[in-house]
Nucleic acid binder design. Sequence first.
DNA 1: ACCAAATGTTAGATTATACTAATATTTTAA
DNA 2: TTAAAATATTAGTATAATCTAACATTTGGT
Lengths: 220, 220
Amino acid sequence: MGSLTEENYIKSIYALSQVTGEVYVSELARKLEVKLPTVNSMVKRLATKKLVAYAPYKGVRLTERGKKEALSIVRKHRLAELFLVKIMSLGWEEVHDIAEQLEHVNSERFYNRIDEMLNYPKADPHGEPIPDSNGKIQVQKRTSLGDLAEGETAIIAAVAEDEKSFLDHLNAKQLQIGDRITIMKKELFDNSITLKHKSGKKILLTHQVAERIWVEVIIP
Amino acid sequence: MGSLTEENYIKSIYALSQVTGEVYVSELARKLEVKLPTVNSMVKRLATKKLVAYAPYKGVRLTERGKKEALSIVRKHRLAELFLVKIMSLGWEEVHDIAEQLEHVNSERFYNRIDEMLNYPKADPHGEPIPDSNGKIQVQKRTSLGDLAEGETAIIAAVAEDEKSFLDHLNAKQLQIGDRITIMKKELFDNSITLKHKSGKKILLTHQVAERIWVEVIIP
DNA sequence: ACCAAATGTTAGATTATACTAATATTTTAA
DNA sequence: TTAAAATATTAGTATAATCTAACATTTGGT
């Protein structure tokens, strides 16, 4: 295991590579809120440690070793989030920052006990899959709520953001993981959607919000 | 709040000052397992930050600000230990190292919730008092088991060591916080003692062990 | 009261992680 | 297809936290 900083780079590279495959130095700089040369030198260091493959002016990619380390951190983060929600009764919108710190705790015992207390969960409070202790993760193909057509019915499976402001927004709209919803109306002009919630309520979402919600479509 | 390293210095200065009042650079170096010049320069830095009072060749002493910071870390450490034992069912001998990491977690919410779940406890699993959220700590005068005379009866109140090997030893002897014991025999030669446990068992302890156990004497 | 032992400080080097300023490469768009 | 824009790298600097080697002060025993 490397330093806290190294762990954060590895984690960010992993997160960004889920979207784009290859990760660019500038993306990393933006995500980690440091300047380009800082990322550049760190990436070179990670490369000498064989955690990433890197060629100048090309992107960065995690090696097998790097990916393993990333998944270990992701596992700890997601277990921590679920623990904070399920065992400690905190809200899903407030656990991210605490989990960012807990994910660096180095103790098999601690995390295996959390896993056990949660009965070996498969997903965190945001619906993201939790890698098992061997680093295996269930990849799920995802449909965005923003892509559904009028009349379609789906179940909210996950959200693409951990940010408090986003989750506060969903709380205010009373949307939760597991909720069944049906698209009533999709506006051509701005792609905003009106959906019917199982509770009977009608909920209006902008496209910006809808595209960050992953769903499992129910084929009638 | 300072860096993790700073927090560890403050915590160690606090711990050592409980014994000696003033803390010497060499003691700190031994405790933190770094060399003297390292401590020297860090102590100077802490002094410019007004966390310690320090004059060259004299000892180090926490300022009010430093003491407040120390107590906040001690509070988090002890709450974490009790949480790990009571809520997560880990053994008292294995929680120290995890708590050393958790004590640096920066989240009022997290620690207030732990405090609440534990019902605002007064002592950690080793019997050490937990400062409240204002940094108030109950100081207790302590008698060492090693100082009791034959025939005296007492209740084990705390242990002076967090180290796994010591706690494993107590586990093996089946001694716990809260146990009532009576001194059967105290050897003049090596100060080892034989005590009677409430369970009826006779237990032999060397002075080295006995002096690390704090008791509350029962006046008959 | 003095010198040796114990303890503490200074000077200078090293590594990790960051920065700014200058330079180089790649991509894009006219 | 070439110049501007976007992106990436290098060079040089800074700070935190550590070290070793050399030097300074304090303490304790005769």
